[in-house]
């Protein structure tokens, strides 16, 4: 059978099954269990209304519990057990083993570099573009083009940038733009950019910055527009120059938005996997935590250490998690 046809059937069954649950469960509730007629109509309606929220919520709660909440605890358990010894409890042995590996510390160091540079540069570029495009006529077109990499997959971006970083043997024409420029200006030999330790991390980061700047720009641009005009007019009347208006009037007013952008990009950075996996796979000292974990889980097949490194990622996002929940609760009051 043609793959497209087969796919279509699977799609119809999957989506149909999901819709069928909601319709049929509601029908059963209203017509079989507690019909809104007969001598007990009033009581039935009340009972049905007590049950209905849980009918609506059940699939979502099940999915959330099984696919996100349960794995957190299961991963914690796995990180404390040894798969080869039939899942025997081994305490912190996996963590001890992980802390003894130089690859782990390399991943930690690189992740810290990523955590510092990617959110900072993306936010900075985003703010810059948002401010610059604010008052020009073709600003929206410019923004839309800078925003575009958001739609491109990390894998696609990896291919795009591998071409940029491509190196041909010395003496032949360079087809990677970075080497073409480098050879043109320095006259030196073309470089294999992705194999130069430490610096190659920055070449990888550039790709994520390229992707995330659009996100930062969209959010910050909306925030800039939300600034009350009076504050800016007052500053102009007082003789502030454009730089002062930007840094002393505008930026302080959108501080909280900058924080949100920063933390959102931080979350992306902590989980960055595809990019490193596709471009260097952690070779030449470019390992990061998420890729280290993937290697432990599916290449070395050491679930204990793999889970331990996953717990490290969880530990790093926990402050953001707490901050988010607190903010959400504050808003609801």
């Amino acid at each position: 059978m043609h793959p497209a046809f087969l796919g279509l059937i699977t799609i119809v069954i999957g989506v149909g099954g999901c819709l069928a649950y909601y319709f049929s469960s509601n029908w059963v509730l209203d017509n079989v269990l507690y019909p809104a007629k007969g001598p007990q109509a009033g009581r039935n309606i009340n009972r049905a209304n007590m049950i209905r929220p849980w009918l609506f919520l059940l699939p979502a709660l099940l999915a959330l519990t099984i696919y996100l909440a349960y794995p957190v605890f299961e991963t914690l358990r796995l990180s404390l057990t040894d798969r080869d010894a039939d899942g025997a409890f081994v305490g912190l042995d996996n963590y001890r083993q992980m802390f003894g590996e130089s690859k782990f510390w390399e991943a930690m160091r690189n992740n810290m570099l990523w955590l510092i540079f990617v959110p900072a540069m993306s936010t900075m570029f985003g703010l810059m573009v948002a401010q610059l495009t604010d008052r020009i006529k073709w600003g929206n077109v410019a923004k839309s083009l800078i925003f575009m990499p958001m739609a491109i997959s990390f894998v696609g971006a990896a291919v795009i940038w591998k071409l940029v970083y491509d190196a041909r043997p010395e003496g032949t024409e360079q087809i990677g733009v970075l080497n073409a420029i480098y050879v043109w200006f320095s006259g030196g030999a073309p470089q294999q950019w992705l194999t130069i330790p430490i610096w190659n991390n920055f070449f990888l980061m550039a790709v994520l910055i390229w992707i995330q700047t659009g996100f930062a720009m969209v959010i910050l641009s909306a925030a800039l527009r939300g600034i009350p005009e009076e504050t800016i007019e007052a500053a102009i009347v007082d003789g502030a120059n454009p730089w002062q208006i930007f840094f002393k009037i505008k930026v302080p007013q959108i501080k909280s938005t900058i924080m949100v952008v920063w933390t959102t990009i931080t979350l992306v950075v902590l989980k960055v996997f595809d990019l490193v996996f596709a471009m260097t796979n952690g070779q030449w000292e470019t390992q990061v935590l998420a890729n280290y974990m993937f290697n432990q889980l599916f290449v070395t097949r050491d679930w204990g250490v793999g889970s331990a490194s996953a717990m490290i990622i969880m530990l790093l996002v926990t402050p953001i998690l707490i901050w988010n929940v607190r903010n959400a609760r504050k808003e609801m009051r």
Binding site: Y67, L68, P71, E74, F273, A290, G306, V317, I320, V325
Partner: peptide, 18 residues
Amino acid sequence: AFVVGLLVVPLQLALIPL
């Protein structure tokens, strides 16, 4: 609050258990 908390849980944690 439960939903908001789960917003940031990295899916890396879910791979092996699931």
